[in-house]
C-alpha cells in the first residue's frame, strides 16, 4: 500500500505564496472577508508560517509552508465521533465532508492547526463563479475541512493508469501546490517505494518533521535551511 508524502526544501522555498494561492483555487477553499479573517476565521488548506529571528537590523525571516501533515499516527482522527476523518489505505488523512457533523474536535486536536471550519455558507463573487473547480466539492457551512493531498487528482490518476493498463508511476499524481511551486521546493511521492525521490530525501541529514516529539509521525518532511 502506498504511503503518499511530501518533502519541502526550505533552502529552495522563497515564501512567495504560489502554493497557497494554487491550493486555494484548486480546492474551492472559501473566500473569507477581512473582518472574519481578523477573527481567525481565514480558510486556508496551505499557509506560509513566517518567523523572524534576531533583533533589528539583523533580522532573519524564515518561511515554512504548513499544511495537513497526513500523520501516520493522527491525533485528529481519534477524536472524531462519526469517523468523518480517518487514515485511509493510501496513507492520506481523509476528511469525508458530508459525514462531518461540525463538532470541531478534530480541529482542536490537531497540533499543527491546519484544519479550518466553515463558519459561513461559501460564496464566490459573480466573476469568479466560473472558476470553481468542478473536480472538487464546495463544502457547505458547518463542516471542518483541510488539505486532502488533492485526492481528486489521485482518483483521476488511478483511473488513467487503469485505462492504460499499468501501475501508477511517479509523477502521475501530484497535488496542485507541488505542481505550481516556481522553485520546485516541494517534492511529492510514495514513501513506501524504496526508489522514490521523497524516500531518499527524507533520509537527508537536513530532514526533520514538525513537532516530531509528539509521535504523530507526519508524512510531510522539511529540509532545514542552511546558509
Amino acid at each position: 500500500m502506498p504511503r503518499w508524502g511530501m518533502v519541502i526544501d526550505l533552502n529552495k522555498c522563497t515564501g512567495c505564496g504560489e502554493c497557497v494561492a494554487a491550493c486555494k483555487v484548486e480546492n474551492n477553499v472559501a473566500i473569507v472577508g477581512p473582518e472574519e479573517s481578523a477573527n481567525e476565521r481565514t480558510m486556508l488548506w496551505m499557509n506560509i508560517l513566517t518567523t523572524y529571528e534576531g533583533e533589528y537590523p539583523d533580522v532573519k525571516v524564515r518561511h515554512m509552508p504548513m499544511l495537513c501533515m497526513h500523520c501516520e499516527n493522527p491525533p485528529c482522527t481519534k477524536v472524531c465521533p462519526v469517523r468523518a476523518t480517518y487514515l485511509n489505505e493510501d496513507g492520506i488523512v481523509a476528511q469525508v465532508f458530508p459525514q462531518c457533523i461540525g463538532c470541531r474536535y478534530c480541529q482542536a486536536a490537531c497540533p499543527y492547526t491546519v484544519k479550518s471550519f466553515n463558519w459561513y455558507k461559501p460564496e464566490w463573487p459573480e466573476e469568479m463563479k466560473k472558476a470553481v473547480n468542478p473536480d472538487v466539492s464546495v463544502r457547505p457551512d458547518g463542516v471542518v475541512e483541510k488539505c486532502t493531498f488533492c485526492i481528486h487528482r489521485l482518483q483521476k490518476a488511478k483511473e488513467q493508469a487503469a485505462a492504460e493498463k499499468r501501475e501508477l508511476q511517479p509523477g502521475d499524481y501530484i497535488p496542485a501546490c507541488v505542481e505550481c511551486c516556481p522553485t520546485k521546493a516541494i517534492y511529492f511521492g510514495d514513501f513506501d517505494d524504496p526508489k522514490s525521490e521523497v524516500n531518499k530525501l527524507k533520509r537527508n541529514p537536513r530532514a526533520f518533521q514538525v513537532l516530531e516529539d509528539l509521535g504523530t509521525e507526519p508524512k510531510v518532511y522539511y529540509l532545514s535551511e542552511v546558509e
Binding site: 480517518y86 493510501d90 481523509a94 469525508v96 465532508f97 459525514q99 486532502t148 485526492i151 482518483q155
Partner: peptide, 8 residues
C-alpha cells in the same frame, strides 16, 4: 469501498 475512492 474506501470512502476516499469516491468522496472528494
Amino acid at each position: 469501498n474506501d470512502c476516499y475512492a469516491c468522496h472528494r
